[in-house]
Design a protein around this nucleic acid. Structure first.
Lengths: 222, 222
DNA sequence: CCCGATACTGTCCTTTGGTCCAATAGCGGT
DNA sequence: ACCGCTATTGGACCAAAGGACAGTATCGGG
Protein backbone atom coordinates (compact mmCIF):
# COMPACT_ATOMS: atom_id res chain seq x y z
CA UNK A 1 0.00 0.00 0.00
CA UNK A 2 2.96 2.27 -0.68
CA UNK A 3 4.35 4.03 2.31
CA UNK A 4 3.55 7.68 2.10
CA UNK A 5 6.06 9.40 4.23
CA UNK A 6 5.31 12.92 5.18
CA UNK A 7 7.74 15.62 4.41
CA UNK A 8 11.21 15.41 3.04
CA UNK A 9 12.13 12.29 1.24
CA UNK A 10 15.30 10.90 -0.14
CA UNK A 11 16.15 12.52 -3.45
CA UNK A 12 18.73 11.21 -5.86
CA UNK A 13 19.90 13.10 -8.90
CA UNK A 14 21.61 11.32 -11.71
CA UNK A 15 23.19 13.35 -14.46
CA UNK A 16 25.68 12.61 -17.22
CA UNK A 17 28.22 15.01 -15.80
CA UNK A 18 27.67 14.14 -12.17
CA UNK A 19 26.63 17.67 -11.47
CA UNK A 20 23.24 19.05 -10.67
CA UNK A 21 21.74 22.19 -12.10
CA UNK A 22 21.48 25.05 -9.62
CA UNK A 23 17.71 24.87 -9.45
CA UNK A 24 17.69 21.27 -8.40
CA UNK A 25 19.95 22.04 -5.54
CA UNK A 26 17.80 24.98 -4.65
CA UNK A 27 14.77 22.71 -4.52
CA UNK A 28 16.49 19.86 -2.71
CA UNK A 29 19.57 21.09 -0.87
CA UNK A 30 20.09 17.79 0.84
CA UNK A 31 19.83 15.64 -2.25
CA UNK A 32 22.44 13.16 -3.38
CA UNK A 33 23.94 13.73 -6.79
CA UNK A 34 25.56 11.02 -8.85
CA UNK A 35 27.06 10.61 -12.29
CA UNK A 36 25.42 8.22 -14.72
CA UNK A 37 26.82 4.75 -14.47
CA UNK A 38 27.68 5.07 -10.83
CA UNK A 39 26.81 2.01 -8.87
CA UNK A 40 23.93 2.37 -6.46
CA UNK A 41 23.72 -0.32 -3.88
CA UNK A 42 20.68 0.37 -1.84
CA UNK A 43 18.06 3.03 -1.93
CA UNK A 44 15.70 3.98 0.88
CA UNK A 45 12.15 2.88 0.31
CA UNK A 46 10.20 5.52 -1.51
CA UNK A 47 13.24 7.30 -2.79
CA UNK A 48 12.77 9.54 -5.78
CA UNK A 49 15.30 9.40 -8.58
CA UNK A 50 15.74 12.25 -11.00
CA UNK A 51 17.36 11.51 -14.31
CA UNK A 52 18.94 14.29 -16.29
CA UNK A 53 19.08 12.98 -19.82
CA UNK A 54 22.27 12.89 -21.78
CA UNK A 55 21.23 14.35 -25.11
CA UNK A 56 23.88 12.39 -26.97
CA UNK A 57 22.50 8.98 -26.15
CA UNK A 58 19.11 7.34 -26.66
CA UNK A 59 16.90 8.04 -23.69
CA UNK A 60 15.45 4.54 -23.30
CA UNK A 61 18.94 3.15 -23.00
CA UNK A 62 19.80 5.55 -20.23
CA UNK A 63 16.58 4.73 -18.50
CA UNK A 64 17.20 1.02 -18.74
CA UNK A 65 20.59 1.46 -17.13
CA UNK A 66 19.11 3.52 -14.38
CA UNK A 67 16.38 1.01 -13.81
CA UNK A 68 18.94 -1.68 -13.30
CA UNK A 69 20.79 0.51 -10.89
CA UNK A 70 17.93 1.73 -8.76
CA UNK A 71 15.39 -1.04 -9.13
CA UNK A 72 11.82 -0.17 -8.36
CA UNK A 73 12.43 3.40 -7.28
CA UNK A 74 10.27 6.03 -8.87
CA UNK A 75 12.00 7.91 -11.62
CA UNK A 76 11.38 11.39 -12.91
CA UNK A 77 13.05 12.44 -16.13
CA UNK A 78 14.27 15.96 -16.67
CA UNK A 79 14.46 16.89 -20.32
CA UNK A 80 16.16 19.98 -21.67
CA UNK A 81 13.76 20.08 -24.53
CA UNK A 82 10.65 18.11 -23.71
CA UNK A 83 9.53 15.92 -26.53
CA UNK A 84 6.13 14.40 -27.00
CA UNK A 85 7.17 11.08 -28.35
CA UNK A 86 10.11 10.68 -26.05
CA UNK A 87 7.89 11.27 -23.06
CA UNK A 88 5.53 8.60 -24.30
CA UNK A 89 8.29 6.10 -24.70
CA UNK A 90 9.67 6.81 -21.29
CA UNK A 91 6.32 6.66 -19.57
CA UNK A 92 5.68 3.30 -21.10
CA UNK A 93 9.07 2.30 -19.76
CA UNK A 94 7.83 3.11 -16.32
CA UNK A 95 8.91 6.60 -15.40
CA UNK A 96 6.64 8.48 -13.05
CA UNK A 97 7.26 11.98 -14.19
CA UNK A 98 8.61 13.93 -17.13
CA UNK A 99 9.35 17.58 -16.88
CA UNK A 100 11.39 20.41 -18.17
CA UNK A 101 14.92 20.56 -16.83
CA UNK A 102 14.57 24.30 -16.52
CA UNK A 103 11.66 24.16 -14.13
CA UNK A 104 11.73 26.35 -11.09
CA UNK A 105 12.61 24.97 -7.69
CA UNK A 106 9.00 25.35 -6.61
CA UNK A 107 7.85 23.35 -9.57
CA UNK A 108 10.36 20.64 -8.91
CA UNK A 109 9.18 20.32 -5.35
CA UNK A 110 5.63 20.11 -6.60
CA UNK A 111 6.56 17.35 -8.98
CA UNK A 112 8.27 15.52 -6.16
CA UNK A 113 5.24 15.66 -3.93
CA UNK A 114 2.97 14.38 -6.65
CA UNK A 115 5.19 11.51 -7.67
CA UNK A 116 5.99 10.49 -4.14
CA UNK A 117 2.29 10.37 -3.43
CA UNK A 118 1.97 7.86 -6.25
CA UNK A 119 0.84 10.14 -9.04
CA UNK A 120 2.22 10.77 -12.45
CA UNK A 121 3.57 14.11 -13.48
CA UNK A 122 2.98 15.14 -17.02
CA UNK A 123 3.21 18.74 -17.98
CA UNK A 124 -0.20 20.08 -18.82
CA UNK A 125 0.79 21.20 -22.27
CA UNK A 126 2.29 17.83 -22.97
CA UNK A 127 -0.79 16.11 -21.63
CA UNK A 128 -3.00 18.03 -23.99
CA UNK A 129 -0.90 17.21 -27.01
CA UNK A 130 -0.61 13.63 -25.95
CA UNK A 131 -4.33 13.26 -25.56
CA UNK A 132 -5.01 14.99 -28.82
CA UNK A 133 -2.68 12.63 -30.62
CA UNK A 134 -4.17 9.63 -28.93
CA UNK A 135 -7.72 10.62 -29.53
CA UNK A 136 -7.32 11.32 -33.21
CA UNK A 137 -5.20 8.25 -33.68
CA UNK A 138 -7.78 6.10 -31.99
CA UNK A 139 -10.76 7.65 -33.66
CA UNK A 140 -9.03 7.05 -36.94
CA UNK A 141 -8.27 3.61 -38.27
CA UNK A 142 -11.65 2.02 -37.81
CA UNK A 143 -10.61 -0.77 -40.14
CA UNK A 144 -7.15 -1.37 -38.82
CA UNK A 145 -8.56 -1.58 -35.32
CA UNK A 146 -10.61 -4.59 -36.28
CA UNK A 147 -8.09 -7.18 -35.20
CA UNK A 148 -7.63 -5.59 -31.80
CA UNK A 149 -11.31 -5.01 -31.48
CA UNK A 150 -12.09 -8.62 -32.13
CA UNK A 151 -9.37 -9.66 -29.79
CA UNK A 152 -10.65 -7.50 -26.98
CA UNK A 153 -14.20 -8.65 -27.54
CA UNK A 154 -13.08 -12.24 -27.38
CA UNK A 155 -11.10 -11.44 -24.26
CA UNK A 156 -14.18 -9.89 -22.76
CA UNK A 157 -16.01 -13.14 -23.39
CA UNK A 158 -13.35 -15.14 -21.70
CA UNK A 159 -13.34 -12.78 -18.77
CA UNK A 160 -17.09 -12.60 -18.45
CA UNK A 161 -17.13 -15.57 -16.09
CA UNK A 162 -15.09 -13.59 -13.61
CA UNK A 163 -16.20 -11.11 -11.01
CA UNK A 164 -15.29 -7.47 -11.50
CA UNK A 165 -12.29 -7.61 -9.26
CA UNK A 166 -11.10 -10.84 -10.77
CA UNK A 167 -11.23 -9.28 -14.21
CA UNK A 168 -9.09 -6.42 -13.03
CA UNK A 169 -6.37 -8.63 -11.65
CA UNK A 170 -6.56 -10.92 -14.67
CA UNK A 171 -5.98 -8.01 -16.99
CA UNK A 172 -3.15 -6.75 -14.86
CA UNK A 173 -1.52 -10.16 -14.89
CA UNK A 174 -1.93 -10.28 -18.65
CA UNK A 175 0.04 -7.08 -19.06
CA UNK A 176 2.93 -8.46 -17.07
CA UNK A 177 2.40 -6.98 -13.63
CA UNK A 178 3.72 -8.83 -10.63
CA UNK A 179 1.47 -9.59 -7.67
CA UNK A 180 3.14 -6.87 -5.69
CA UNK A 181 2.54 -4.33 -8.43
CA UNK A 182 -1.06 -5.35 -8.81
CA UNK A 183 -1.54 -5.02 -5.08
CA UNK A 184 -0.16 -1.51 -5.22
CA UNK A 185 -2.22 -0.60 -8.24
CA UNK A 186 -5.46 -1.78 -6.69
CA UNK A 187 -4.67 -0.66 -3.18
CA UNK A 188 -5.03 -4.12 -1.68
CA UNK A 189 -2.73 -6.70 -0.15
CA UNK A 190 -0.56 -9.02 -2.17
CA UNK A 191 -2.33 -11.82 -0.37
CA UNK A 192 -5.65 -10.69 -1.75
CA UNK A 193 -4.24 -10.45 -5.21
CA UNK A 194 -3.16 -14.05 -4.89
CA UNK A 195 -6.63 -14.99 -3.74
CA UNK A 196 -8.20 -13.39 -6.81
CA UNK A 197 -5.65 -14.89 -9.12
CA UNK A 198 -6.20 -18.29 -7.58
CA UNK A 199 -9.90 -18.21 -8.30
CA UNK A 200 -9.23 -16.91 -11.79
CA UNK A 201 -6.96 -19.88 -12.39
CA UNK A 202 -9.77 -22.20 -11.45
CA UNK A 203 -12.43 -20.46 -13.49
CA UNK A 204 -10.31 -20.14 -16.61
CA UNK A 205 -8.55 -23.42 -16.09
CA UNK A 206 -5.13 -21.83 -16.20
CA UNK A 207 -2.05 -23.43 -14.73
CA UNK A 208 -0.09 -20.32 -13.94
CA UNK A 209 -0.01 -16.61 -14.67
CA UNK A 210 1.64 -17.08 -18.03
CA UNK A 211 -1.13 -19.34 -19.22
CA UNK A 212 -3.58 -16.82 -17.89
CA UNK A 213 -1.89 -14.09 -19.89
CA UNK A 214 -2.09 -16.19 -23.03
CA UNK A 215 -5.78 -16.81 -22.46
CA UNK A 216 -6.60 -13.19 -21.76
CA UNK A 217 -4.57 -12.05 -24.74
CA UNK A 218 -6.29 -14.53 -26.99
CA UNK A 219 -3.25 -16.67 -27.69
CA UNK A 220 -4.85 -19.75 -26.27
CA UNK A 221 -8.35 -21.01 -25.54
CA UNK A 222 -9.33 -21.44 -21.94
CA UNK B 1 1.14 27.45 -12.02
CA UNK B 2 -1.45 26.61 -9.43
CA UNK B 3 -2.15 27.50 -5.87
CA UNK B 4 -0.99 24.82 -3.55
CA UNK B 5 -2.78 25.00 -0.30
CA UNK B 6 -1.44 22.92 2.54
CA UNK B 7 -3.42 20.30 4.37
CA UNK B 8 -7.08 19.45 4.32
CA UNK B 9 -8.95 20.87 1.45
CA UNK B 10 -12.53 21.23 0.50
CA UNK B 11 -13.92 18.06 -0.98
CA UNK B 12 -17.16 17.85 -2.89
CA UNK B 13 -18.74 14.59 -3.95
CA UNK B 14 -21.29 14.49 -6.68
CA UNK B 15 -23.15 11.27 -7.31
CA UNK B 16 -26.29 10.37 -9.21
CA UNK B 17 -28.07 9.26 -6.08
CA UNK B 18 -26.83 12.02 -3.84
CA UNK B 19 -25.16 9.47 -1.65
CA UNK B 20 -21.51 8.69 -1.20
CA UNK B 21 -20.01 5.24 -1.01
CA UNK B 22 -18.75 4.27 2.44
CA UNK B 23 -15.14 4.51 1.44
CA UNK B 24 -15.43 8.05 0.28
CA UNK B 25 -16.82 9.07 3.59
CA UNK B 26 -14.14 7.11 5.34
CA UNK B 27 -11.53 9.01 3.39
CA UNK B 28 -13.14 12.41 3.73
CA UNK B 29 -15.51 12.49 6.69
CA UNK B 30 -16.04 16.20 6.36
CA UNK B 31 -16.80 16.21 2.69
CA UNK B 32 -19.89 17.68 1.13
CA UNK B 33 -22.05 15.31 -0.84
CA UNK B 34 -24.45 16.42 -3.51
CA UNK B 35 -26.76 14.83 -6.03
CA UNK B 36 -26.10 15.40 -9.70
CA UNK B 37 -27.89 18.44 -11.02
CA UNK B 38 -27.80 20.27 -7.76
CA UNK B 39 -26.92 23.90 -8.15
CA UNK B 40 -23.56 24.92 -6.77
CA UNK B 41 -23.11 28.58 -6.27
CA UNK B 42 -19.59 29.10 -5.14
CA UNK B 43 -16.72 26.82 -4.46
CA UNK B 44 -13.67 27.55 -2.32
CA UNK B 45 -10.53 28.08 -4.33
CA UNK B 46 -8.70 24.83 -4.89
CA UNK B 47 -11.68 22.66 -4.09
CA UNK B 48 -11.62 19.14 -5.37
CA UNK B 49 -14.73 17.74 -6.98
CA UNK B 50 -15.36 14.03 -7.20
CA UNK B 51 -17.79 12.79 -9.79
CA UNK B 52 -19.38 9.41 -9.40
CA UNK B 53 -20.53 8.48 -12.85
CA UNK B 54 -24.07 7.48 -13.57
CA UNK B 55 -23.66 4.37 -15.65
CA UNK B 56 -26.91 4.97 -17.47
CA UNK B 57 -25.86 8.23 -19.08
CA UNK B 58 -22.96 9.22 -21.31
CA UNK B 59 -20.02 10.28 -19.20
CA UNK B 60 -19.04 13.36 -21.23
CA UNK B 61 -22.52 14.74 -20.80
CA UNK B 62 -22.35 14.35 -17.04
CA UNK B 63 -18.94 15.97 -17.03
CA UNK B 64 -20.14 18.90 -19.09
CA UNK B 65 -22.95 19.52 -16.63
CA UNK B 66 -20.59 19.36 -13.75
CA UNK B 67 -18.18 21.72 -15.43
CA UNK B 68 -20.93 24.26 -15.78
CA UNK B 69 -21.78 23.84 -12.15
CA UNK B 70 -18.34 24.01 -10.62
CA UNK B 71 -16.36 26.03 -13.11
CA UNK B 72 -12.64 25.69 -13.00
CA UNK B 73 -12.45 23.35 -10.03
CA UNK B 74 -10.40 20.23 -10.42
CA UNK B 75 -12.47 17.17 -11.09
CA UNK B 76 -11.73 13.56 -10.35
CA UNK B 77 -13.95 10.91 -11.87
CA UNK B 78 -14.78 7.72 -10.04
CA UNK B 79 -15.69 4.88 -12.36
CA UNK B 80 -17.22 1.60 -11.28
CA UNK B 81 -15.53 -0.15 -14.13
CA UNK B 82 -12.64 1.86 -15.43
CA UNK B 83 -12.57 2.06 -19.17
CA UNK B 84 -9.67 2.96 -21.37
CA UNK B 85 -11.47 5.00 -23.93
CA UNK B 86 -13.76 6.69 -21.48
CA UNK B 87 -10.80 7.83 -19.43
CA UNK B 88 -9.18 9.27 -22.51
CA UNK B 89 -12.25 11.20 -23.44
CA UNK B 90 -12.66 12.56 -19.97
CA UNK B 91 -9.03 13.57 -19.59
CA UNK B 92 -9.18 15.44 -22.83
CA UNK B 93 -12.26 17.12 -21.42
CA UNK B 94 -10.16 18.37 -18.58
CA UNK B 95 -10.54 16.05 -15.63
CA UNK B 96 -7.55 15.75 -13.35
CA UNK B 97 -7.99 12.23 -12.14
CA UNK B 98 -9.72 9.03 -13.03
CA UNK B 99 -9.87 6.15 -10.64
CA UNK B 100 -11.73 3.10 -9.57
CA UNK B 101 -14.80 3.77 -7.48
CA UNK B 102 -13.89 0.84 -5.27
CA UNK B 103 -10.59 2.31 -4.24
CA UNK B 104 -9.70 2.23 -0.60
CA UNK B 105 -9.93 5.30 1.57
CA UNK B 106 -6.15 5.49 1.68
CA UNK B 107 -6.00 5.48 -2.08
CA UNK B 108 -8.62 8.16 -2.38
CA UNK B 109 -6.71 10.40 -0.04
CA UNK B 110 -3.62 9.74 -2.09
CA UNK B 111 -5.42 10.72 -5.25
CA UNK B 112 -6.61 13.87 -3.57
CA UNK B 113 -3.15 14.89 -2.53
CA UNK B 114 -1.76 14.33 -5.98
CA UNK B 115 -4.46 16.22 -7.79
CA UNK B 116 -4.46 19.07 -5.33
CA UNK B 117 -0.71 19.38 -5.83
CA UNK B 118 -1.35 19.91 -9.50
CA UNK B 119 -0.72 16.39 -10.77
CA UNK B 120 -2.83 14.05 -12.75
CA UNK B 121 -4.02 10.77 -11.40
CA UNK B 122 -4.23 7.90 -13.79
CA UNK B 123 -4.34 4.37 -12.47
CA UNK B 124 -1.19 2.54 -13.33
CA UNK B 125 -2.99 -0.25 -15.08
CA UNK B 126 -4.94 2.24 -17.10
CA UNK B 127 -1.79 4.17 -17.87
CA UNK B 128 -0.18 1.08 -19.27
CA UNK B 129 -3.09 0.28 -21.52
CA UNK B 130 -3.43 3.87 -22.55
CA UNK B 131 0.19 4.07 -23.50
CA UNK B 132 0.04 0.81 -25.35
CA UNK B 133 -2.84 2.10 -27.42
CA UNK B 134 -1.08 5.37 -28.06
CA UNK B 135 2.16 3.77 -28.97
CA UNK B 136 0.71 1.40 -31.50
CA UNK B 137 -1.38 4.19 -32.94
CA UNK B 138 1.55 6.54 -33.17
CA UNK B 139 3.97 4.07 -34.62
CA UNK B 140 1.35 3.94 -37.29
CA UNK B 141 2.08 1.33 -39.84
CA UNK B 142 2.11 3.06 -43.22
CA UNK B 143 1.47 -0.27 -44.89
CA UNK B 144 -1.87 -0.72 -43.17
CA UNK B 145 -0.86 -3.57 -40.95
CA UNK B 146 -1.44 -7.01 -42.23
CA UNK B 147 -2.48 -8.28 -38.86
CA UNK B 148 -0.77 -11.58 -38.30
CA UNK B 149 1.95 -11.23 -40.86
CA UNK B 150 3.29 -8.03 -39.42
CA UNK B 151 3.08 -9.40 -35.95
CA UNK B 152 5.04 -12.52 -36.73
CA UNK B 153 7.59 -10.65 -38.77
CA UNK B 154 8.05 -8.19 -35.95
CA UNK B 155 8.45 -11.10 -33.57
CA UNK B 156 11.08 -12.57 -35.81
CA UNK B 157 12.90 -9.25 -35.74
CA UNK B 158 12.81 -9.20 -32.01
CA UNK B 159 14.17 -12.73 -31.84
CA UNK B 160 16.85 -12.18 -34.42
CA UNK B 161 19.22 -10.85 -31.80
CA UNK B 162 19.18 -14.25 -30.11
CA UNK B 163 21.22 -17.33 -30.81
CA UNK B 164 19.47 -20.38 -32.21
CA UNK B 165 19.09 -22.11 -28.91
CA UNK B 166 17.94 -18.93 -27.23
CA UNK B 167 15.22 -18.53 -29.81
CA UNK B 168 14.01 -22.03 -29.11
CA UNK B 169 13.68 -21.48 -25.41
CA UNK B 170 12.20 -18.02 -25.92
CA UNK B 171 9.47 -19.44 -28.12
CA UNK B 172 8.83 -22.24 -25.65
CA UNK B 173 8.53 -19.74 -22.82
CA UNK B 174 6.15 -17.66 -24.92
CA UNK B 175 3.80 -20.60 -25.32
CA UNK B 176 3.64 -21.13 -21.60
CA UNK B 177 6.09 -23.94 -20.99
CA UNK B 178 7.78 -24.21 -17.64
CA UNK B 179 11.54 -24.50 -17.37
CA UNK B 180 11.22 -28.17 -16.53
CA UNK B 181 9.09 -28.81 -19.61
CA UNK B 182 11.46 -26.91 -21.85
CA UNK B 183 14.36 -28.90 -20.47
CA UNK B 184 12.58 -32.13 -21.28
CA UNK B 185 11.57 -30.93 -24.73
CA UNK B 186 15.10 -29.92 -25.65
CA UNK B 187 16.80 -32.77 -23.85
CA UNK B 188 18.90 -30.52 -21.64
CA UNK B 189 19.06 -29.65 -17.97
CA UNK B 190 16.69 -27.24 -16.34
CA UNK B 191 19.77 -25.40 -15.26
CA UNK B 192 20.75 -24.80 -18.86
CA UNK B 193 17.29 -23.64 -19.72
CA UNK B 194 17.64 -21.05 -17.01
CA UNK B 195 20.95 -19.94 -18.45
CA UNK B 196 19.46 -19.43 -21.89
CA UNK B 197 16.45 -17.66 -20.52
CA UNK B 198 18.69 -15.43 -18.47
CA UNK B 199 20.60 -14.24 -21.50
CA UNK B 200 17.37 -13.79 -23.42
CA UNK B 201 16.12 -11.55 -20.63
CA UNK B 202 19.19 -9.40 -21.01
CA UNK B 203 19.08 -9.19 -24.78
CA UNK B 204 15.39 -8.42 -24.99
CA UNK B 205 15.36 -6.34 -21.85
CA UNK B 206 12.66 -8.46 -20.26
CA UNK B 207 12.06 -8.60 -16.55
CA UNK B 208 10.61 -12.07 -16.30
CA UNK B 209 9.15 -14.82 -18.45
CA UNK B 210 5.79 -13.14 -18.71
CA UNK B 211 7.30 -10.00 -20.15
CA UNK B 212 9.29 -12.18 -22.48
CA UNK B 213 6.09 -13.86 -23.63
CA UNK B 214 4.48 -10.49 -24.28
CA UNK B 215 7.48 -9.39 -26.31
CA UNK B 216 7.68 -12.55 -28.36
CA UNK B 217 3.95 -12.49 -28.95
CA UNK B 218 4.07 -8.90 -30.06
CA UNK B 219 2.08 -7.49 -27.16
CA UNK B 220 4.88 -5.26 -26.07
CA UNK B 221 8.00 -3.77 -27.58
CA UNK B 222 11.31 -4.94 -26.25
C1' DC C 1 -32.46 -13.16 9.88
C1' DC C 2 -29.72 -16.36 7.51
C1' DC C 3 -27.30 -17.49 3.21
C1' DG C 4 -24.49 -17.07 -0.76
C1' DA C 5 -21.47 -14.24 -3.42
C1' DT C 6 -17.78 -10.99 -3.30
C1' DA C 7 -13.92 -8.89 -1.36
C1' DC C 8 -10.25 -8.89 1.71
C1' DT C 9 -6.51 -10.60 4.94
C1' DG C 10 -3.58 -13.81 7.57
C1' DT C 11 0.13 -17.82 8.24
C1' DC C 12 2.64 -21.78 6.77
C1' DC C 13 4.72 -24.25 3.31
C1' DT C 14 6.40 -25.98 -1.36
C1' DT C 15 7.62 -25.21 -5.89
C1' DT C 16 9.33 -22.28 -9.51
C1' DG C 17 11.79 -18.72 -11.24
C1' DG C 18 15.90 -15.99 -11.55
C1' DT C 19 20.65 -14.40 -10.40
C1' DC C 20 25.57 -14.92 -9.22
C1' DC C 21 29.94 -17.18 -9.52
C1' DA C 22 32.29 -20.69 -11.79
C1' DA C 23 33.65 -24.25 -14.97
C1' DT C 24 34.10 -27.33 -19.33
C1' DA C 25 33.94 -27.94 -24.24
C1' DG C 26 33.33 -27.37 -29.33
C1' DC C 27 33.75 -24.36 -33.31
C1' DG C 28 35.30 -20.80 -36.43
C1' DG C 29 38.31 -17.06 -37.40
C1' DT C 30 43.00 -14.49 -36.99
C1' DA D 1 47.80 -21.26 -30.59
C1' DC D 2 44.69 -17.82 -28.93
C1' DC D 3 40.25 -15.55 -28.81
C1' DG D 4 35.39 -15.04 -28.95
C1' DC D 5 30.89 -17.00 -29.26
C1' DT D 6 27.77 -20.71 -28.14
C1' DA D 7 26.14 -24.43 -25.46
C1' DT D 8 26.24 -26.84 -21.46
C1' DT D 9 26.09 -27.78 -16.33
C1' DG D 10 26.81 -27.28 -11.11
C1' DG D 11 25.78 -25.21 -6.66
C1' DA D 12 24.23 -21.72 -3.68
C1' DC D 13 20.99 -18.41 -2.72
C1' DC D 14 17.03 -15.42 -2.72
C1' DA D 15 12.55 -13.74 -4.43
C1' DA D 16 8.14 -14.69 -6.39
C1' DA D 17 4.37 -17.59 -7.15
C1' DG D 18 0.95 -20.60 -5.76
C1' DG D 19 -1.59 -23.98 -2.71
C1' DA D 20 -3.72 -25.24 1.90
C1' DC D 21 -6.35 -23.85 5.68
C1' DA D 22 -8.85 -20.23 8.07
C1' DG D 23 -10.99 -16.15 9.12
C1' DT D 24 -13.65 -11.38 8.83
C1' DA D 25 -16.86 -8.10 6.56
C1' DT D 26 -20.23 -6.25 3.33
C1' DC D 27 -24.25 -6.69 0.54
C1' DG D 28 -28.31 -8.24 -1.68
C1' DG D 29 -31.84 -11.30 -1.74
C1' DG D 30 -35.31 -14.96 -0.02
Amino acid sequence: MSSRSPGSQFQLFVSPSGEALPRWLEAFPKAVVLAQGTFVESLPDGALVWLRLDASRPAPEQLAELHKAVGAARIVVLASQPDNEQALTLFSAGIRGYCNAHSTAANLRQVASVVQAGGLWIGEALMQRLLAATRTAILKTPVASLPQDVASRAAADRLSALTGREQEVARAVATGSSNKEIARQLGITERTVKAHIGSVFQKLNARDRLHLALIVNGQRPS
